[in-house]
């Protein structure tokens, strides 16, 4: 008889934050309950990235549309799961023509690869404020392992407790076959996902 962990699943535009969410809860080790219900606030959720280029300002971008699911098992952290799906077409780097270029075949190739996906494979608690989520990232149809460090911060008290999450990862775009513009455009893409969730 397999012990089925108590779990919650949340879905929504903001849920990419799942990562943070899930792991955050783990890190803070919410007392006395094996699972707690957390709702992500989409308005406070941002999936952003930064990339450098030679003789060019650092480009900052954000994905506006995403969805995800999260299952938290506080007693067995390793059984927690998180996955998210980001719409490549929703990339926003600050100007319409720049967006078109980033979406085009030379970079995200959004028409061919509409989503960028992440699914966790393991979760490890680093300390009281940080967890490390390891998973598979699929970009341009190529799947590679990715480690994400998540910082958790408790905001507010009592019945209105809120958890802030900041997840950081560095992606080597060459690993996914995104070679265009290299070496003028850096191979490293810094990913920062921030979110806030509240208990209900």
């Amino acid at each position: 008889m397999v012990d089925v962990p108590p779990r919650i699943a949340r879905q929504g535009r903001g849920a990419a934050l799942a990562i943070g969410l899930a792991l955050g809860a783990l890190a803070l080790s919410t007392p006395s309950r094996s699972a707690s219900n957390w709702a992500i606030d989409p308005a406070r959720t941002h999936i952003t990235f930064d990339i450098d280029a030679v003789a060019y300002p650092r480009t900052h971008g954000e994905f506006r549309k995403f969805a995800g699911t999260i299952a938290v098992d506080l007693e067995h952290p390793a059984r927690s799961r998180v996955s998210f799906h980001v719409e490549a077409q929703s990339v926003d780097v600050g100007s319409a023509s720049f967006n078109d270029y980033v979406r085009s075949a030379v970079l995200l190739d959004a028409p061919r690869f509409p989503t960028i996906d992440f699914a966790s494979t393991s979760v490890e608690k680093l300390d009281e404020r940080r967890v490390r989520v390891t998973g598979d990232l699929t970009l341009l149809g190529v799947t590679r392992p990715l480690g994400v460090d998540v910082e958790v911060e408790r905001r507010g008290e009592g019945t209105h407790a809120r958890l802030g999450f900041t997840a950081r990862a560095r992606i080597d775009r060459l690993e996914f076959g995104m070679n265009s513009g290299f070496p003028v455009i850096s191979r490293d893409v810094d990913l920062v996902i921030s979110s806030e969730a509240s208990e209900f």
Binding site: P57, T59, G94, S95, F98
Partner: peptide
């Protein structure tokens, strides 16, 4: 000193 997006548009 324009940011990346503005600069992209200026080049275009």
């Amino acid at each position: 000193g324009a940011d990346a997006a503005r600069r992209f548009d200026l080049y275009q």
